[in-house]
Amino acid sequence: MKCHELAEEYDLYALGVLEEPERSELQAHLARNCEICAPEVRRAAMRVSSFASLAPVVDPPPRLRGRLMASIGVEPRFRWNWMQTWAAVAACVLLGVFWFNHTRRERVQAIAFRDAMEQLRQSETESARMKEVLALLNSPETIVRVSTEGATQPPQGKVFVNPTHGVLLLAANLPPAPAGKIYEMWVIPAGGKPVPAGLFQTESNGSAVHLYRGAVDVASTGAVAVTLEASEGAAQPTSPPIIVAPIKKG
């Protein structure tokens, strides 16, 4: 066949649908590098390649690029770009906000828990103390004495002494100890040296409840007194007594 007879067949050949005998004829022309047919088949191949644009565009999976490069011996390399940078920054910010809120919530919860436990502990301590006070007050062996010192609205003390439970002081009109000072109670044996019986502070209304725990020899106790001492307390009174309640009568 002559070249002009094959003119309609170039695109069919390039598309892969040219049938015999035209196909063999054209292949023969191409085999001898026909100056007319060869460039026309090349043009037809280019036209046919344009049919690729009929395919819907789909992005290949990102991993395919790495697979391809690995297949020619190139290890995958992390490719950083602005989108990833912003995504990383956003993730860090979100993580930071989440962590901050989480730790703050935990801190608040921990403080609340600690406060609750402290209140419970104080409540239990107070409750135990009140039980001791009531036990002392309720004991038939307890004797009651009242202080005698003072003038107009003097500090007053009512003392309950029990040989087993100890000494309970109920004070009134006793102003809060100044800074660096504290009240100290003393159990004073008749004719002997005062024995320290605990430190205490008063309420803002001048009242105080102080319990000295321990056995007391009521028969030999001459008085119970209160002095104002340095905040760490003293082994012996260093100031005149503010409250004195005689125990041993007569």
Partner: peptide, 14 residues
């Protein structure tokens, strides 16, 4: 090869 893929990978895959 990486540049070739970046240029024609999407249309070839499609």
């Amino acid at each position: 090869m990486a540049d070739l893929y970046d240029r024609y990978g999407r249309i070839a895959y499609s």
